[in-house]
């Protein structure tokens, strides 16, 4: 049975223990950052930061969301990878660090802006879902350390059921009319499921994340059609048709 991680934004207090636990378990180095007028730090996910709490401020309200790899069922990063270094191991999308060439295509393809190229190692890196832990019956470091239960880990079906229950409570009891589950169906089903208190855009998530390769056939076709148009428009018109007209005019004059 596939596993999943459930992130409930309504329970997140932005303590960032998940960030610290992730760095500690995966031995990711600290990143030097500058004060940007916010407690949100570091500013973005990177090759050295695989989970981070995003801060958004609204009148009388702070919104927090732990951002990390979604481990999509239909993963754009995996589909565009030119070497096959990105693959699914069960529900986990992993990057083989010994095979990745560091082309950066996965960085461009991810709808959630998760993978990042490590300029020193020369490979793309991102959350591994603590595959070394979960294959040994442990929970990912971020879920293990979360002090409020905002990050949970378990069977995907159980996580989705728990998410729907929580949304019902948020709507009925707490008045979050926009609350919803995110990740049940997106990208063929995510393995990081969210309980959101508002629309995905409010939390910096795409309403309908798209697979990068969804239009690849159309894109090739549009290039080929343009080549066809250019072949006819200037080349056939200028080089063949004009030659023929000139030849016809010449023969007409000769006849006259």
């Amino acid at each position: 049975m596939p596993k999943a991680r459930l992130i409930d934004v309504s329970k997140c207090i932005a303590c960032r223990a998940c960030q610290v636990a992730c760095k500690q378990w995966n031995e990711l180095e600290a990143v030097t950052t500058r004060q940007r007028g916010t407690y949100e730090n570091p500013p973005r996910l990177s090759a050295h930061t695989w989970i981070k709490v995003e801060f958004r401020e609204r009148p009388n309200e702070w919104l927090f969301r732990a951002h990390t790899c979604m481990h999509c069922t239909n993963a754009g990063c995996e589909q565009v990878c030119p070497t096959g270094a990105i693959s699914h191991q069960g529900e986990v999308v992993v990057i083989d660090q010994n095979w990745c060439v560091g082309c950066g295509y996965c960085v461009q393809a991810c709808p959630f802006h998760v993978p990042d190229k490590d300029e020193i190692a020369g490979t793309a890196r991102k959350c591994t879902f603590c595959i070394d832990r979960i294959t040994n019956g442990l929970t990912p470091a971020c879920a293990k350390t979360c002090p409020t239960g905002a990050i949970q880990f378990g069977e995907r079906a159980d996580m989705i059921a728990a998410a729907h229950d929580r949304v019902q409570t948020l709507v009925a009891r707490d008045g979050y009319r926009g609350a919803r589950v995110y990740g049940e169906h997106e990208m063929g089903g995510l393995h990081t499921i969210y309980v959101l208190t508002d629309a995905p855009e409010v939390f910096g998530l795409p309403e309908e994340p798209r697979l990068a390769t969804a239009t690849v056939g159309t894109q090739w076709l549009s290039g080929a059609i343009t080549a066809g148009v250019i072949a006819i428009l200037p080349f056939w018109l200028l080089f063949q048709r004009r030659n023929r007209i000139a030849a016809e005019r010449e023969s007409n004059q000769r006849e006259v």
């Binding site: 690849v216 090739w220 290039g223 080929a224």
Partner: peptide, 11 residues
Amino acid sequence: SYTGVLLATSN
């Protein structure tokens, strides 16, 4: 075509 499709197949 590839030079454009490379970019267009992204997010």
